[in-house]
Design a protein around this nucleic acid. Sequence first.
DNA 1: AAAAATTTTTAGACTCGTCTAAATTTTTAT
DNA 2: ATAAAAATTTAGACGAGTCTAAAAATTTTT
Lengths: 217, 217
Amino acid sequence: MHSFTEENYLKTIYYLAARQEGEVTTNSLAEMTATKAASVSDMLRKLAEKQLIHYKKYQGVRLTEEGERLALKVIRRHRIWEVFLAEKLGFGWDEVHEMAEELEHIRSEDLVQKLDAFLGYPQFDPHGDPIPSPAGQMPTVEYTKLSEVTIGEEVQVMGVLEHSPEFLQHLDKTGLNLGCRVLVQDVNAFDKSVSVQINHEKTLFVSNEVARNLLVN
Amino acid sequence: MHSFTEENYLKTIYYLAARQEGEVTTNSLAEMTATKAASVSDMLRKLAEKQLIHYKKYQGVRLTEEGERLALKVIRRHRIWEVFLAEKLGFGWDEVHEMAEELEHIRSEDLVQKLDAFLGYPQFDPHGDPIPSPAGQMPTVEYTKLSEVTIGEEVQVMGVLEHSPEFLQHLDKTGLNLGCRVLVQDVNAFDKSVSVQINHEKTLFVSNEVARNLLVN
DNA sequence: AAAAATTTTTAGACTCGTCTAAATTTTTAT
DNA sequence: ATAAAAATTTAGACGAGTCTAAAAATTTTT
């Protein structure tokens, strides 16, 4: 069995590897896990001993197959719990992450399996992130950032890149929810902000900052 | 905030105080928490410093008001999660305890409140144990042990004193489930075993050991 | 290509919760 | 009432995970 903390490191390494190009560094891990680089170094040595990561001193880190399997298990649990919290308990998509950070560490194969069934085998969490399969496969999705969509195209909001409550609450306020249709009317040449029409109704101005963090198809 | 471990000690002290007459001792805590007496001593000093227990060396231990409030909070979470696992996910009453031991430590007032609402504000957990109120009151129930019921009386199974999976599975096998009606037909003078009729159908012999652990009204 | 800056690792220490072994207090038995 | 037994606490240690400060390696700058 692996500790709480080890699971968090593996999960974080997975996220950083997926997000960044290049190696996952000690510093980036320290930042993500809100610890110090020294602590990360210690833990990397430990994870390497357990064969969960490939690690050469000063050279960054990569998950082994076993490490990735574990990371995806944790991510699967996290996202399934998020669906439960949002769909069954009525929490907002800006609230579910924090609770799921704790729930993801409850270790019972049976529990997550039954929960998955109870929820009807959801494919995506409340932020549009795909849920890894029980076998440990991360579904591939190819979405585009709203900031890349050309004028005149109509797309649908499928997910977010930024998961902070502040960002999600901002989307709630402006009505940019998952699944809503967005017609790109204009792109401002100066600041790259986007003028969009939502659900064939109201028109909205979306900053480039926001558009870069909205995933559409 | 209090640690996982502290919560477990408080909960255990509460249970032992309710179950036993007299003081809760270091040894009984050590047995219940599957640790050694020395570890318990250390923790008691710590809990006393935090004013969660009344503690004089060599003299046993009692929860303070604040300690009891916390213990009941944990027990409430535990039992609500048990209801969820049994009613919504379809786990047996012999399976829910272990998972609830982990879930009870998830700290979000909001979560337990919403879960409670989702479950329709249940009054009892799957073993018939009452669920403490949000304000931290343990409902009083006065049940009788089946072993105390006089011949000819018909009663209903309301709960269990023994919570081990083995005991619960035994009850499942013999059909002695929560809510079933039990008519006491005879009591064996020698071994105090009880002959009962269940739901006006089949007749069953129940050992005194089992009868002493079955709560009826 | 050497110096400076940055990143990473090591060394040593701390907290939490646990342990064993020894000391102390309380209880029980004679 | 005192000795023996049992329960409890203290002392000292350990592993996990963290920290700060210092050392070492790597990268960037000049």
